[in-house]
Protein backbone atom coordinates (compact mmCIF):
# COMPACT_ATOMS: atom_id res chain seq x y z
CA UNK A 1 0.00 0.00 0.00
CA UNK A 2 1.38 3.37 -0.98
CA UNK A 3 1.33 5.88 1.85
CA UNK A 4 2.93 8.86 0.20
CA UNK A 5 3.25 9.52 -3.48
CA UNK A 6 5.31 12.39 -4.79
CA UNK A 7 5.10 13.25 -8.44
CA UNK A 8 6.75 15.95 -10.49
CA UNK A 9 7.74 17.84 -7.37
CA UNK A 10 9.68 21.07 -7.84
CA UNK A 11 10.80 23.44 -5.09
CA UNK A 12 12.41 26.65 -6.27
CA UNK A 13 13.63 29.59 -4.19
CA UNK A 14 13.59 32.93 -5.93
CA UNK A 15 16.65 34.84 -4.62
CA UNK A 16 18.49 37.99 -5.60
CA UNK A 17 21.14 36.06 -7.48
CA UNK A 18 18.68 33.82 -9.33
CA UNK A 19 16.32 30.90 -8.85
CA UNK A 20 17.69 28.16 -6.60
CA UNK A 21 16.33 24.88 -7.95
CA UNK A 22 16.73 22.93 -4.73
CA UNK A 23 14.27 20.18 -5.64
CA UNK A 24 13.82 19.67 -9.34
CA UNK A 25 11.28 17.16 -10.59
CA UNK A 26 11.21 14.37 -8.09
CA UNK A 27 8.96 11.32 -8.32
CA UNK A 28 8.93 8.74 -5.61
CA UNK A 29 6.55 6.82 -3.41
CA UNK A 30 6.81 5.49 0.10
CA UNK A 31 4.81 2.45 1.17
CA UNK A 32 3.24 1.86 4.55
CA UNK A 33 5.84 0.76 7.12
CA UNK A 34 8.65 1.10 4.64
CA UNK A 35 11.95 2.72 5.52
CA UNK A 36 13.09 4.74 2.57
CA UNK A 37 16.63 6.12 2.55
CA UNK A 38 17.53 9.38 0.86
CA UNK A 39 21.24 9.86 0.30
CA UNK A 40 23.24 12.61 -1.30
CA UNK A 41 26.06 15.07 -0.90
CA UNK A 42 25.60 18.15 1.20
CA UNK A 43 23.47 20.83 -0.44
CA UNK A 44 21.75 18.54 -2.92
CA UNK A 45 18.30 19.38 -1.55
CA UNK A 46 17.46 16.58 0.90
CA UNK A 47 16.34 18.82 3.73
CA UNK A 48 14.43 21.04 1.34
CA UNK A 49 12.57 17.97 0.07
CA UNK A 50 11.62 17.05 3.64
CA UNK A 51 10.46 20.57 4.44
CA UNK A 52 8.48 20.68 1.20
CA UNK A 53 6.60 17.54 2.23
CA UNK A 54 5.76 19.23 5.55
CA UNK A 55 4.92 22.49 3.78
CA UNK A 56 7.26 24.34 6.11
CA UNK A 57 8.95 26.60 3.59
CA UNK A 58 8.53 30.34 3.34
CA UNK A 59 5.45 31.39 1.35
CA UNK A 60 7.63 33.02 -1.31
CA UNK A 61 8.97 29.60 -2.31
CA UNK A 62 7.49 28.12 -5.48
CA UNK A 63 6.37 24.53 -5.08
CA UNK A 64 4.88 22.59 -8.00
CA UNK A 65 3.69 19.03 -8.52
CA UNK A 66 1.66 16.82 -6.22
CA UNK A 67 2.27 15.20 -2.87
CA UNK A 68 -0.43 12.64 -2.28
CA UNK A 69 -0.75 11.38 1.26
CA UNK A 70 -3.53 8.83 1.85
CA UNK A 71 -5.35 10.25 -1.14
CA UNK A 72 -5.04 13.94 -0.11
CA UNK A 73 -2.89 16.33 -2.07
CA UNK A 74 -0.85 18.05 0.61
CA UNK A 75 -0.07 20.97 -1.66
CA UNK A 76 -3.68 22.00 -2.12
CA UNK A 77 -5.27 21.46 1.29
CA UNK A 78 -5.77 24.43 3.60
CA UNK A 79 -3.18 25.53 6.14
CA UNK A 80 -5.51 24.46 8.96
CA UNK A 81 -5.78 20.95 7.53
CA UNK A 82 -2.05 20.83 7.02
CA UNK A 83 -1.47 21.72 10.67
CA UNK A 84 -3.49 18.67 11.68
CA UNK A 85 -1.23 16.51 9.55
CA UNK A 86 2.01 17.94 10.89
CA UNK A 87 3.12 16.09 13.97
CA UNK A 88 0.08 13.83 14.01
CA UNK A 89 0.25 12.10 10.61
CA UNK A 90 3.70 13.08 9.41
CA UNK A 91 6.40 14.06 11.85
CA UNK A 92 9.73 15.56 10.93
CA UNK A 93 12.82 15.23 13.06
CA UNK A 94 14.95 18.17 11.97
CA UNK A 95 18.66 17.89 11.52
CA UNK A 96 20.90 19.29 14.26
CA UNK A 97 19.12 18.67 17.59
CA UNK A 98 21.23 21.31 19.35
CA UNK A 99 19.59 24.17 17.51
CA UNK A 100 16.27 22.44 16.93
CA UNK A 101 15.26 22.33 20.59
CA UNK A 102 13.99 25.51 22.20
CA UNK A 103 16.73 26.49 24.67
CA UNK A 104 14.45 28.14 27.19
CA UNK A 105 11.72 25.49 27.41
CA UNK A 106 11.89 22.27 29.42
CA UNK A 107 12.37 19.21 27.23
CA UNK A 108 9.29 17.47 28.66
CA UNK A 109 7.14 20.47 27.87
CA UNK A 110 8.41 20.54 24.29
CA UNK A 111 7.17 17.01 23.84
CA UNK A 112 3.98 17.50 25.84
CA UNK A 113 2.77 20.50 23.87
CA UNK A 114 2.35 18.44 20.71
CA UNK A 115 0.48 15.76 22.68
CA UNK A 116 -1.85 18.34 24.20
CA UNK A 117 -2.53 19.80 20.81
CA UNK A 118 -3.15 16.64 18.81
CA UNK A 119 -4.54 14.24 21.40
CA UNK A 120 -6.39 16.77 23.51
CA UNK A 121 -4.82 15.52 26.74
CA UNK A 122 -4.77 17.72 29.83
CA UNK A 123 -1.51 19.26 30.99
CA UNK A 124 -0.84 16.60 33.64
CA UNK A 125 -1.64 13.64 31.38
CA UNK A 126 0.37 15.08 28.52
CA UNK A 127 3.33 15.53 30.83
CA UNK A 128 3.09 11.87 31.89
CA UNK A 129 2.91 10.81 28.27
CA UNK A 130 5.99 12.91 27.54
CA UNK A 131 7.91 11.18 30.31
CA UNK A 132 6.79 7.86 28.88
CA UNK A 133 8.10 8.87 25.47
CA UNK A 134 11.46 9.91 26.90
CA UNK A 135 11.57 6.60 28.71
CA UNK A 136 10.78 4.73 25.51
CA UNK A 137 13.76 6.30 23.75
CA UNK A 138 15.81 5.08 26.73
CA UNK A 139 16.60 8.30 28.46
CA UNK A 140 17.52 7.27 32.00
CA UNK A 141 15.62 8.91 34.87
CA UNK A 142 13.11 10.22 32.35
CA UNK A 143 10.82 11.93 34.83
CA UNK A 144 13.68 14.03 36.16
CA UNK A 145 15.12 14.66 32.71
CA UNK A 146 11.77 15.87 31.43
CA UNK A 147 12.12 18.88 33.71
CA UNK A 148 15.54 19.80 32.40
CA UNK A 149 16.49 22.24 29.68
CA UNK A 150 18.10 21.13 26.39
CA UNK A 151 21.56 22.39 27.31
CA UNK A 152 21.64 19.91 30.18
CA UNK A 153 21.35 17.05 27.69
CA UNK A 154 24.27 15.44 25.88
CA UNK A 155 24.30 15.33 22.08
CA UNK A 156 22.99 11.77 21.95
CA UNK A 157 20.28 12.56 24.47
CA UNK A 158 19.14 15.58 22.52
CA UNK A 159 18.80 13.37 19.46
CA UNK A 160 16.77 10.88 21.50
CA UNK A 161 14.58 13.70 22.74
CA UNK A 162 14.03 14.81 19.14
CA UNK A 163 13.02 11.28 18.22
CA UNK A 164 10.68 11.10 21.22
CA UNK A 165 9.16 14.36 20.07
CA UNK A 166 8.63 12.97 16.57
CA UNK A 167 7.03 9.78 17.89
CA UNK A 168 4.89 11.51 20.51
CA UNK A 169 1.66 11.63 18.53
CA UNK A 170 2.14 8.28 16.87
CA UNK A 171 2.47 9.52 13.27
CA UNK A 172 2.22 7.19 10.27
CA UNK A 173 5.27 8.67 8.56
CA UNK A 174 8.45 10.03 10.06
CA UNK A 175 10.90 12.16 8.16
CA UNK A 176 14.22 11.88 9.98
CA UNK A 177 16.88 14.33 8.80
CA UNK A 178 20.37 13.02 9.50
CA UNK A 179 19.57 11.60 12.92
CA UNK A 180 23.04 10.11 13.36
CA UNK A 181 25.12 13.06 12.27
CA UNK A 182 27.87 14.18 14.61
CA UNK A 183 27.47 11.30 17.07
CA UNK A 184 30.34 9.09 18.12
CA UNK A 185 30.37 5.43 17.15
CA UNK A 186 28.68 3.86 20.19
CA UNK A 187 26.00 6.49 20.45
CA UNK A 188 25.43 6.21 16.72
CA UNK A 189 24.90 2.48 17.07
CA UNK A 190 22.40 3.04 19.88
CA UNK A 191 20.46 5.64 17.93
CA UNK A 192 20.47 3.43 14.85
CA UNK A 193 19.07 0.59 16.95
CA UNK A 194 16.42 2.91 18.34
CA UNK A 195 15.38 4.04 14.87
CA UNK A 196 15.27 0.46 13.69
CA UNK A 197 12.78 -0.43 16.41
CA UNK A 198 10.62 2.57 15.64
CA UNK A 199 10.76 1.98 11.93
CA UNK A 200 9.21 -1.46 12.32
CA UNK A 201 5.77 0.00 12.80
CA UNK A 202 6.01 3.18 10.82
CA UNK A 203 6.93 4.42 7.43
CA UNK A 204 10.09 6.47 7.48
CA UNK A 205 11.95 8.76 5.13
CA UNK A 206 15.50 8.59 6.41
CA UNK A 207 17.80 11.34 5.16
CA UNK A 208 21.43 10.52 5.73
CA UNK A 209 25.02 10.81 4.56
CA UNK A 210 25.88 7.56 6.22
CA UNK A 211 25.72 4.53 3.94
CA UNK A 212 26.31 2.15 6.83
CA UNK A 213 23.28 3.45 8.67
CA UNK A 214 21.26 3.39 5.45
CA UNK A 215 22.17 -0.20 4.74
CA UNK A 216 21.26 -1.27 8.26
CA UNK A 217 17.89 0.45 8.29
CA UNK A 218 16.44 0.98 4.84
CA UNK A 219 14.27 -1.19 2.63
CA UNK A 220 14.90 1.00 -0.38
CA UNK A 221 17.45 3.70 -1.06
CA UNK A 222 17.42 6.70 -3.39
CA UNK A 223 20.43 8.78 -4.37
CA UNK A 224 19.91 12.46 -4.90
CA UNK A 225 22.17 14.73 -6.91
CA UNK A 226 21.68 18.45 -7.55
CA UNK A 227 17.98 18.43 -6.80
CA UNK A 228 16.99 15.26 -8.60
CA UNK A 229 17.01 11.53 -8.00
CA UNK A 230 19.69 9.73 -10.01
CA UNK A 231 19.09 6.16 -8.89
CA UNK A 232 16.82 4.19 -6.63
CA UNK A 233 16.27 0.55 -5.85
CA UNK A 234 16.02 -1.95 -3.02
CA UNK A 235 18.89 -1.57 -0.56
CA UNK A 236 20.72 -4.77 -1.49
CA UNK A 237 20.35 -4.01 -5.17
CA UNK A 238 21.98 -0.59 -4.67
CA UNK A 239 24.91 -2.08 -2.83
CA UNK A 240 25.33 -5.15 -5.05
CA UNK A 241 24.56 -3.61 -8.39
CA UNK A 242 25.06 0.15 -8.41
CA UNK A 243 24.52 1.50 -11.92
CA UNK A 244 24.92 5.26 -11.78
CA UNK A 245 28.52 6.55 -11.67
CA UNK A 246 27.50 8.86 -8.81
CA UNK A 247 26.23 5.90 -6.78
CA UNK A 248 29.41 4.01 -7.48
CA UNK A 249 31.47 7.00 -6.50
CA UNK A 250 29.48 7.36 -3.32
CA UNK A 251 29.97 3.70 -2.44
CA UNK A 252 33.66 4.06 -3.28
CA UNK A 253 33.98 6.79 -0.72
CA UNK A 254 32.94 4.38 2.06
CA UNK A 255 35.74 3.73 4.57
CA UNK A 256 35.67 0.00 3.69
CA UNK A 257 36.16 0.72 0.01
CA UNK A 258 39.23 2.88 0.18
CA UNK A 259 37.74 6.30 0.85
CA UNK A 260 38.05 7.68 -2.65
CA UNK A 261 35.99 10.84 -2.81
CA UNK A 262 34.20 11.80 -6.01
CA UNK A 263 36.34 14.44 -7.71
CA UNK A 264 34.93 17.94 -8.23
CA UNK A 265 32.13 19.75 -6.50
CA UNK A 266 28.35 19.63 -6.79
CA UNK A 267 27.08 22.31 -9.16
CA UNK A 268 25.37 25.52 -8.09
CA UNK A 269 21.63 24.97 -7.97
CA UNK A 270 21.14 28.35 -9.62
CA UNK A 271 23.25 27.57 -12.64
CA UNK A 272 22.92 23.88 -13.45
CA UNK A 273 25.01 22.30 -16.22
CA UNK A 274 23.30 21.37 -19.47
CA UNK A 275 22.73 17.72 -20.22
CA UNK A 276 23.33 15.29 -17.38
CA UNK A 277 23.90 17.28 -14.21
CA UNK A 278 26.65 14.93 -13.14
CA UNK A 279 28.63 14.95 -16.39
CA UNK A 280 31.33 17.48 -15.37
CA UNK A 281 32.43 15.10 -12.61
CA UNK A 282 31.79 11.83 -14.44
CA UNK A 283 34.72 9.80 -15.76
CA UNK A 284 32.44 8.02 -18.26
CA UNK A 285 30.88 11.15 -19.72
CA UNK A 286 30.20 10.95 -23.47
CA UNK A 287 29.11 13.55 -25.98
CA UNK A 288 25.43 12.83 -25.40
CA UNK A 289 25.79 13.40 -21.66
CA UNK A 290 26.80 17.00 -22.30
CA UNK A 291 23.79 17.72 -24.49
CA UNK A 292 20.81 15.70 -23.37
CA UNK A 293 19.28 15.44 -19.95
CA UNK A 294 18.79 11.72 -19.19
CA UNK A 295 15.41 10.44 -17.96
CA UNK A 296 14.93 8.19 -14.99
CA UNK A 297 14.36 4.74 -16.50
CA UNK A 298 13.49 1.41 -14.97
CA UNK A 299 16.34 -0.91 -15.92
CA UNK A 300 15.11 -3.82 -13.86
CA UNK A 301 11.93 -4.27 -11.83
CA UNK A 302 12.09 -1.60 -9.14
CA UNK A 303 15.55 -0.36 -10.10
CA UNK A 304 15.52 3.15 -11.59
CA UNK A 305 18.58 4.97 -13.00
CA UNK A 306 19.15 8.33 -14.67
CA UNK A 307 22.10 7.56 -16.93
CA UNK A 308 22.66 6.90 -20.64
CA UNK A 309 25.16 4.20 -19.80
CA UNK A 310 22.88 1.99 -17.76
Amino acid sequence: MTLLEISDLKTHFPTQSGIVRAVDTIDLSIRERETFGLIGETGCGKTVLGLTLMRLLHPTTTVEGTIRYRGKNLLTISEAEMRLIRGEEIAMILQNPTTSLNPVMRVGEQIAEAIRLHQGLRRRAAKEKAVEMLDSVRIPAASRRANEYPHEFSGGMKQRAMIAMGLACDPALIIADEPTKGLDVTIKAQITELIKETAKEKAMLLITHDLGVARALCDRIALMYAGELVEYAATEEIFENPLHPYTRGFLGSLPGNGLVPIPGMSPSLIDLPDGCRFHPRCSHAKAVCRKKHPELIEVEAGHFVRCFDA
Binding site: F13, T47, V48, L51, L57, H58, T99
Partner: peptide, 8 residues
Amino acid sequence: SPAYGRGL
Protein backbone atom coordinates in the same frame (compact mmCIF):
# COMPACT_ATOMS: atom_id res chain seq x y z
CA SER B 1 16.87 36.51 4.27
CA PRO B 2 13.20 35.73 4.85
CA ALA B 3 12.09 35.44 8.44
CA TYR B 4 12.05 31.70 8.32
CA GLY B 5 13.60 29.14 6.08
CA ARG B 6 17.09 30.05 7.24
CA GLY B 7 19.60 27.62 8.63
CA LEU B 8 18.50 24.59 6.63
